[in-house]
Write a protein that binds this DNA or RNA. Structure first.
Lengths: 210, 210
DNA sequence: AGTTGTGAATCTGTTCACAGCC
DNA sequence: GGCTGTGAACAGATTCACAACT
């Protein structure tokens, strides 16, 4: 279940969708599900789902489908969300505060444990009980608190600096909201870009064109 | 420049990155750029950029690269962001309010013109000067105001209903923050899913695995 | 010499179809 | 009969390599 190499990022992203779908089904009282059932929930196809799962092992029963509880546990293990993750928020402007407030993502074992800011007016205060530290203390705090992930929401201009500091602090996973996208992470650090402008501009393209 | 068919969504998404990079370069005083220059800015490769652009025409000069101003104008036209777009916000809970506050995206010609809500306590009020209407009035208002795009941030449970109402209101482009992903839009409507949980769970996978 | 634009080659991802099991 | 797991076929995206142009 662990060291599978060369699995497409697209597969990984979809695994996360399957997990949510399965949790819904469970909450709905279902006990087992076929690849077709899952496909309908996530707007995909049955062979796609079987193929994605097959990269990691055989979890179903021929003729019967998948046991929902088991598959949930399996997917949680694969995705690593069976563990608790401590996350740093770097930059607590409008967007950062919004993400803090928005509890949606922190459901599955992600916890914002520290906030880092440049603005002296904010340093030393707390938001939702979470302490705000000066950026310089990031290496120390991240080590102390065992923080391995960061959500970076600083302005574009400070992005490169923030990235570098995060890596120097032992951060291995970055969720990047800055729009800065030419940072090359070292071999075992990972960056995921979230780019809402690009999304909405793509919509603009489709509406204009078709 | 208009009706190119069958262009990959990935290309479109990247066009948006190129556009931002070029604007930065322009603001920095640059006048022309090679595909290599752009590639460095966006963390891609030179042939990728030339290929992407080639689907729409030949905009460069051999031996010299691209005139930045011209390419910006071209890309704006291709993406349709040379027009002003009015956008509806559907659901103004925590996440919706955050997006409103966060001016980042509204730079390039997108304007939130109306907010739609179920909560009677919010209806009739305004946020940042933008009126909050009951969801039922969506078809009427969207037609009056010529709103063709919607950002949907309602809770998962209300998503399907919200999608349906948006389409009934003439909305052609939806930016979907609900996590609901099995909605099949009709031929000339388009949905873009933004899924931050999936992003962060993917990070969890990479950190755990490598 | 420098750089574009592009067909051809390669690589990656998805779909199909069916053997094998329940 | 129903459904998984998977190799093989197919489709799609990226990279390469080079002719054409400045």
């Amino acid at each position: 279940m662990a060291k599978q190499k060369d699995i497409s990022p697209l597969t990984i992203q979809r695994l996360s969708l399957y997990l949510r779908a399965l949790r819904e089904m469970r909450d709905f009282g279902e006990v087992s599900a076929s690849s077709k059932d899952i496909a309908e929930r996530v707007g995909s196809t049955a062979p796609q789902i079987r193929k994605d799962l097959s990269y990691f092992g055989s979890f179903g029963q021929k003729g019967r489908g998948y046991k929902i509880d088991e598959l949930i546990t399996t997917l949680e293990k694969i995705l690593g969300v069976d563990k608790k993750w401590k996350v740093a928020l770097v930059g607590v402007g409008k967007l950062g505060q919004s993400l803090l407030q928005y509890k949606g993502f922190w459901k599955s074992g992600f916890e914002i444990a520290a906030i880092f800011e440049k603005d002296p007016g904010k340093i030393g205060r707390r938001i939702l009980g979470i302490p705000i530290y000066p950026t310089e203390s990031m290496p120390k705090i991240c080590e102390q608190e065992n923080i391995l992930m960061a959500i970076i929401t600083v302005p574009f201009e400070s992005a490169e600096e923030a990235f570098q500091r995060a890596l120097d602090s032992g951060i291995r996973g970055i969720l990047n909201f800055t729009g800065y996208c030419c940072f090359k992470p070292p071999p075992h650090a990972f960056i995921k870009d979230v780019n809402m402008s690009a999304e909405i501009e793509a919509l603009s393209y489709y509406i204009s064109t078709y």
